[in-house]
Simulated scan of single mutants.
Amino acid sequence: MDTGILHSILDNDFYKFTMQHGVVKLFPKARARYQFINRGKHAFPLGFAEALRKEVDAMAGLKLTIEEKKFLADACPYLDPTYLDFLQGYCYNPKEVVIEQQGEDVQIFIEGYWYRTILWEVPLLCLVSELFYKFQDTERVPDETVIETTKDKIEKFKALEIKVAEFGTRRRHSYQVHRMVMETLCRYGKPSFVGTSNVHFAMINQVKPIGTHAHEWFMFHAAKYGFKMANTMALEHWVDVYRGDLGIALSDTYTSTSFFRQFDKKFAKLFDGVRHDSADPVDFAKQTIDHYRSLGINPMSKTIIFSDALNYDKVNRIASYCAGKIGMSFGIGTNLTNDVGLKPMNIVIKMTEALPEDGEWTPVVKLSDERGKYTGEESMIALAKSVLHIN
């Protein structure tokens, strides 16, 4: 088994770096724990944990290069020079990751300072996915088919006259497939194709890195400030760090209904829009449009980023509804980077506990609009639902 699948520290989703920047500024002593969740109940072959361990150990050698630092400074002026200096000195510590295998079950645990451990999730999922297919020894479709399929997809999206970004890092088939998909999107996608969540491929292809924050940003704030204040404090701190840049707010950490109760006129005006990540997208669009209108804000001045398991039919349905009502853009992930004739994996890594500087280890939860995406301890989920009056 070859080692060293990952070749760049920037081969990660952009929101991991933007959140890390915020954590370094605001919560440098906070600690976090994460856990791998095998949603698809995939059976891992014997020896998988050992192979993954080798890849994780190899990541200790990844360093931000001078060229990569310059790219971030030029493309992302809202990232402080002090943060870029920090990132240049950062290296993965494999000791923060525990990997265990019993039979066909693999478990992964991460623990350490939040500002450090925040970068593990996406590359670990990439490695799990790529190694899984290598162990299966399954043949994907030829390169020509990958390129042709991607070209066909982006041509169809262009016909809808919408904006599309590539969001497929974490469950990609492989680095090689991801690279071909990105090259194809850049070659044939303009003007619809607007960028990627993967910073490494954004740099290589000279496109915009796209992303703001993830559920863990809000989950940590619940551990520090309580469920009632989690959304509000998470949004306040985001504004404190970015002062108007990176203005797309994630809405469904504790259900969108709860989010919109706290997304008042101040936040609705400060943020450029919201991101949809669970449940019916058209229902969410209606809810968002109604919310903006109730605050006297023209929905056409705002944007929804749709990013939940998108394919052409789903995008077409959403675009048909939103046209002329609200701005929209689409982050398409696995459908682009793992459409190679094999079943994509259904895997995630989620924060499970947080330790704020002035607190104690606290279990954290996520209450998506889609109940099947809930994560966390049952007792804590029940508490959150009670506090936030969620049925």
Score class of each variant (00 low, 15 high):
Asp2Glu: 15
Thr3Pro: 02
Thr3Gly: 15
Ile9Ala: 01
Asp11Val: 00
Asn12Val: 06
Asp13Lys: 09
Thr18Trp: 12
Thr18Ser: 15
Met19Cys: 07
Phe27Lys: 08
Pro28His: 09
Gln35Lys: 15
Asn38Ile: 03
Arg39Cys: 00
Arg39Ser: 05
Gly40Phe: 09
Lys41His: 11
Ala43Leu: 14
Ala58Leu: 04
Met59Val: 06
Gly61Gln: 11
Lys63Ser: 15
Thr65Met: 10
Ile66Met: 12
Glu67Pro: 03
Lys70Phe: 10
Ala73Thr: 07
Ala75Met: 02
Ala75Glu: 11
Pro77Ala: 04
Pro81Asn: 06
Tyr83Asn: 11
Phe86Ser: 11
Gln88Trp: 04
Gly89Trp: 14
Cys91Pro: 00
Glu96Gly: 01
Val97Ser: 08
Val98Tyr: 12
Glu100Asp: 09
Glu100Gly: 01
Gln102Trp: 01
Gly103Cys: 08
Phe109Tyr: 15
Phe109Thr: 06
Glu111Arg: 07
Gly112Trp: 08
Tyr115Met: 05
Thr117Leu: 08
Ile118Cys: 14
Val122Glu: 13
Val122Arg: 10
Leu125Tyr: 05
Phe132Asp: 08
Glu139Cys: 14
Thr145Ser: 08
Val146Lys: 14
Lys151Leu: 03
Lys153Asp: 01
Ile154Pro: 00
Phe157Gly: 06
Lys158Ile: 04
Glu161Phe: 10
Gly168Leu: 07
Thr169Pro: 00
Arg170Gln: 03
His173Gly: 05
Tyr175Ile: 05
Gln176Tyr: 08
Val177Lys: 01
His178Leu: 12
His178Thr: 11
Leu185His: 03
Pro191Arg: 14
Ser192Asp: 09
Val194Ala: 12
Thr196Tyr: 01
Phe201Lys: 00
Gln206Met: 02
Val207Asn: 05
Pro209His: 04
Ile210Val: 12
Thr212Arg: 04
Glu216Val: 03
Phe218Val: 06
Lys228Cys: 05
Ala230Ile: 00
Ala234Asp: 01
Ala234Leu: 05
Val241Gln: 14
Leu246Ala: 14
Ala249Cys: 03
Ser251Val: 01
Asp252Ser: 03
Ser256Phe: 06
Ser256Arg: 15
Thr257His: 13
Arg261Trp: 02
Lys266Glu: 12
Ala268Tyr: 10
Ala279Lys: 02
Asp280Val: 12
Pro281Ile: 11
Val282Ala: 10
Ala285Gln: 13
Asp290Met: 07
Arg293Gln: 08
Ser294Pro: 03
Gly296Met: 05
Ile305Glu: 07
Ser307Leu: 05
Ser307Thr: 13
Asp308Thr: 02
Ile318His: 05
Ser320Tyr: 00
Ser320Glu: 01
Cys322Pro: 01
Ala323Phe: 01
Lys325Gln: 04
Ile326Leu: 04
Ile326Ala: 05
Ile332Pro: 07
Ile332Arg: 09
Ile332Ser: 04
Gly333Glu: 00
Asn335His: 13
Leu336Pro: 01
Leu336Asn: 13
Asp339Gly: 04
Leu342Lys: 06
Lys343His: 11
Pro344Phe: 14
Met345His: 10
Met345Cys: 13
Ile347Glu: 04
Val348Gln: 06
Val348Ile: 10
Ile349Gln: 15
Lys350Val: 00
Lys350Leu: 03
Thr352Leu: 07
Gly359Gln: 06
Trp361Ala: 08
Trp361Lys: 06
Ser368Cys: 10
Ser368Trp: 09
Ile381Pro: 02
Lys385Asn: 11
